[in-house]
Amino acid sequence: MNKKYQVFISSTYEDLKEERDQAIKAVLEMGHIPVGMEMFSAGDEEQWQIIARQIEATDYYVVIVGHRYGSETDEGISYTEKEYDYAKECGVPTLGFVIDNKAPWPHDKTDNDSVKKGKLDVFKAKVKSKPIHFWSNKEDLHGKVSISLIKTMNANPRVGWTRSDEAIGPEVTKEISRLSAENAHLRRDIEKLKKAKNSQENKVKEVARIMFGNKRSLRVRESTATPWEDSHEYINTLFSIFRYIAPNLINESSNSSIAIDIAFNLHGNKYSQETPIPTNMISGLITDFVALEVIEPSKKKHTVSDKEKYWTLTILGKELIKKSKRIELESNLNSGEDEQETKDDNSKKDLVK
């Protein structure tokens, strides 16, 4: 596999143009990708973000140091040193090339300012803290960059870049095939879930439509001494009655508990604690809700002495009350307290549309 590495070349600019060209040439001759940031102006913070991203994507970092410290950031550090520090921070292998102090060098390419000299000495010491190469001219630098990079690439291979047609071998092809089959299987499962969800939503709408279209007359008495013919009569839709009993049916509820839930919602707390609603009316309601598949017998265990019948919501019943409650809550965000009839009208519109 023919892998190409990205090599970031850093140095001061004006004084080391020819030396940088030689380093770039060495990288190109090896068949790799040189990256130089001399086309970007110093002092541009957005510019630094571009440079930082380039360093993060770099396989190897080359720093060339001459006799100038270079342009500085607002923090008082040269961009060359800032790049070097960031490369080390990112874990990019760094190769340092420092000019030999004995090598002849033009005076106009040397820092004369004592502060700049001091910073340059500190930076050189930082670079020399790792194995480096000293160079005396651009030709010497060219050869040393080539040899050093070859050794480093062999000793510490990096991710690099590879042509896609070379990167895809038999194992990759097999894995792609497996993933494609798995992807197709998942798409089929998602499609099934979508169809099931649509079917469930349509069923919820149909059941809600039936509930809103059917009303039941119920009687609530305030005490066991009250004859049923003198009890209070209420006429409600099956949907309203279902809303009264659904909260406790999320867990489970008995026939007598269902009767109490309905009596409380219809008549407040002034109802008979014993049979507030005729048992035949409760049985009829339960039959209606079983026929609509919104409740079913509870599967929880009870003592042998407990003769009550217990019921719980089906999946369809849970979906219906969940959607109804969601509509109510969203409606309350935009208005004050409504009358129950108005709330039911709103629920009907949203549930069956």
Rank of each mutant, 00 (worst) to 15 (best):
A246V: 12
D21F: 11
N156G: 05
V115E: 08
G317K: 01
I50W: 15
D85V: 09
A291S: 14
E139K: 13
I315Q: 03
D338F: 11
E330L: 15
P34Y: 08
M1F: 03
E337I: 15
I245A: 13
E328W: 07
S254P: 07
L316E: 01
I176G: 03
E308Y: 04
Q200D: 09
N334M: 11
R20H: 05
P247G: 11
F239M: 06
D111F: 02
Y244E: 04
F40P: 03
A291M: 14
A263N: 01
S129Q: 14
G31Y: 11
D15S: 08
K109R: 14
K25M: 12
I327F: 06
S41L: 14
V204C: 00
A52V: 13
W135C: 03
D306T: 08
F212Q: 10
L238M: 00
Y86K: 05
I295A: 04
D306C: 09
N334S: 08
R163Q: 11
V27Q: 12
R326D: 01
T314Y: 05
H67V: 02
G70L: 12
T342V: 15
W48E: 01
E308P: 07
N255C: 11
K25E: 10
P170A: 02
E38P: 01
I235L: 09
D288Q: 15
A225V: 07
R158M: 14
D288M: 08
V145C: 14
T312F: 06
I260T: 12
K102W: 09
R53H: 08
P227K: 03
W135A: 06
V220R: 05
S177G: 05
I327L: 11
